[in-house]
Design a protein around this nucleic acid. Structure first.
Lengths: 337, 337
DNA sequence: ACCGATGATGTTAGCGATAACACCCGTCAG
DNA sequence: CTGACGGGTGTTATCGCTAACATCATCGGT
């Protein structure tokens, strides 16, 4: 009578319709071998007819496991983290896992610990933490060892399973590309120094210069914003000896481009610039930006793989994966004047 | 003995330690009134001592409700949707809800229906669909009426509860701002025509021109990319009568800026440009971009509010909320030469 | 001093699945 | 012919919680 009150069909309803016990329905659902083919078909038909959908809460209650993965990420729209998250959600979805995202305003120990706790409340099967700076990495010490955990963009020195873009290689390639174009040396506008990504890029840049026996100019420290890139660019633009700049991300590069433009220094004629990230609009900067493209989808896949290994096997043998980025050449690099 | 096997404490463990029944523990947890203060404190102490955390699966099983909200969003890093999502996750987290994100590669009916089904499998309390174009909006017809649903950036003509930025007002303000600067008329580079956001902005732009009795130039249709903005810009740059352009988002505007630059048309001296979104780097375009800033956090809050109203009260009285954006003036607008 | 109302607590019965075990029935080796 | 074996199925217990009802003391009103 009352349509609203009729509850969703449960396993016993399917069993009754198919003329079997609910346990047999459960067996069909979980692909147990010992079910006669004919029975299996009958149960499948009943499931379909009733529009039955298994109750995950009930399953989770008895098995003690969920199909949920928790992700802790900063509440920012920085291109890198956002791309990573999006790619991870897609990968996890395809593998049949739901992803619960816990956003954190600042990457301090307390906030991250709280987000991790919320995920544990939900009894997630595992956790992914996008922990790009040291305070975030420190917070991971609080995570209990029995909870499967993978860190992305985290501390390379730490023992936790980690997936990350190979910042060093990307920065090395970018710098070498500028040297190959004929520049004496390359200046660097760095991201925040407590970010591992930024630190890795600084190292790759320095290694490239040292390997080619070039002078290593002082690092221009900035945050990730176009605004700070602009400020760094204003200083660089005033120094005539600066002919090549490697910026730690594309938005910093954008700020540098604007500073150069305002100062009348043409890019790439007077100064060459390389960025990092390959944001979609980088090809439409003035001029189109040569940059380094990380493969976020690959990072996401590896992250999921590493996590699922831990979920099923306990411990993983190779707890570290690095994804090499690719240099994308556009029009912001030229030989020095 | 075996530490690994010791299971998490359950309600009965807390009850035993506190010397009460498990039901009393449940009452304390759910803030039922009829519990003596002293008992309450004793239970709280026991909870803390054991590190007890309620099992959500068990609760969901008996109540038939979860504290999970499903979000369906496209797998893109477009600034608007990404900001919205991030803001929503934060708002929901603060309200004690977990957010499960289902990413969809393309916004067609089938993909969205599948994503909604996955969320229903999880027995989410409600669903938010970021449905910015008509195919996405069509897919919502498949969502069963009893499932609380809020659409964001969806079809204004449809009856589903909807929260959206007031595109019309934003576009109207942008256009009027250009007219007020002295321009005869304003050209428009539009986003994809099947997106409601884009359509709303076209309408606002047209309304402003008509209200001021100006000629309405043909719409330059594009997608959201800097690349397509560049192509549209190349055409506009060739027409000397074009002195003011309103682009449907900041990346389109970026493409327009580059096209103008290449053609030797100075912004804002020869041509004024206004964008939409206020992406963080817009202040560092060449020149800094005047644009329209939507309040994504407000959209997120309203969305959550509308959804929770439906969850608790069944139906909502005011199923439509619109958030007015704000014009941000920078340096890309000037009187015509 | 008795009664019903009220507050504080305990007891019992599920929610919907899986796990463990029991059972029935053929088949096949001895 | 019999008993061990194993495939196919059913029965029962259980996960951790909340809902509903039961119980018992306390208390104010007549």
């Amino acid at each position: 009578m009352d349509q609203k009150t009729t509850r969703d069909p449960a396993m016993t309803d399917v069993a009754r319709l198919a003329g079997v016990s609910h346990q047999t329905v459960s067996r069909v659902l979980n692909d147990h071998p010992n079910v006669r083919e004919q029975t299996r078909l009958r149960v499948r038909a009943a499931i379909k007819e009733l529009g039955y959908r298994p109750n995950r809460a009930a399953r989770a209650l008895v098995t003690g496991k969920t199909q949920l993965i928790g992700v802790v990420a900063q509440n920012s729209t920085l291109y890198g983290p956002a791309s990573l998250l999006s790619a991870f959600e897609e990968a996890a979805g395809e593998a049949g896992f739901a992803v619960s995202v816990g956003r954190v305003k600042v990457l301090d120990r307390e906030s991250i610990a709280a987000a991790v706790e919320r995920h544990r409340d939900q009894r997630v099967a595992g956790i992914v933490v996008i922990a790009p700076n040291s305070s975030a990495a420190d917070a991971l010490a609080d995570v209990p060892a029995e909870l499967p955990l993978v860190t992305v963009d985290g501390d390379p020195e730490r023992a936790t399973p980690l997936v990350t873009v190979d910042q060093g290689v990307g920065a090395y390639d970018a710098t070498t590309h500028l040297l190959d174009a004929g520049h004496q040396t390359v200046w660097h506008v760095s991201g925040p120094t407590d970010w591992f990504d930024a630190a890795g890029r600084v190292q790759g840049w320095r290694r490239a210069l040292e390997l080619h026996d070039r002078e290593v100019p002082p690092v221009m420290a900035a945050d990730w914003s176009a605004s700070s890139g602009y400020r760094a660019g204003q200083m660089l633009a005033r120094m005539p000896e600066v002919t090549a700049v490697f910026a730690s991300n594309d938005h910093l590069a954008l700020g540098v481009l604007r500073a150069m433009h305002e100062r009348g220094r043409r890019v790439p004629h007077d100064v060459s610039v390389v960025g990092f990230d390959d944001v979609p609009e980088a090809a439409y900067f003035i001029p189109p930006l040569t940059t380094v493209r990380p493969d976020f989808a690959a990072v996401a896949r590896e992250t999921l793989g590493l996590l699922l290994e831990q979920v099923s096997e306990g411990e993983s043998a190779r707890p570290r994966r690095t994804i090499a980025p690719v240099l994308v050449q556009r029009e912001s690099v030229a030989p020095p004047a």
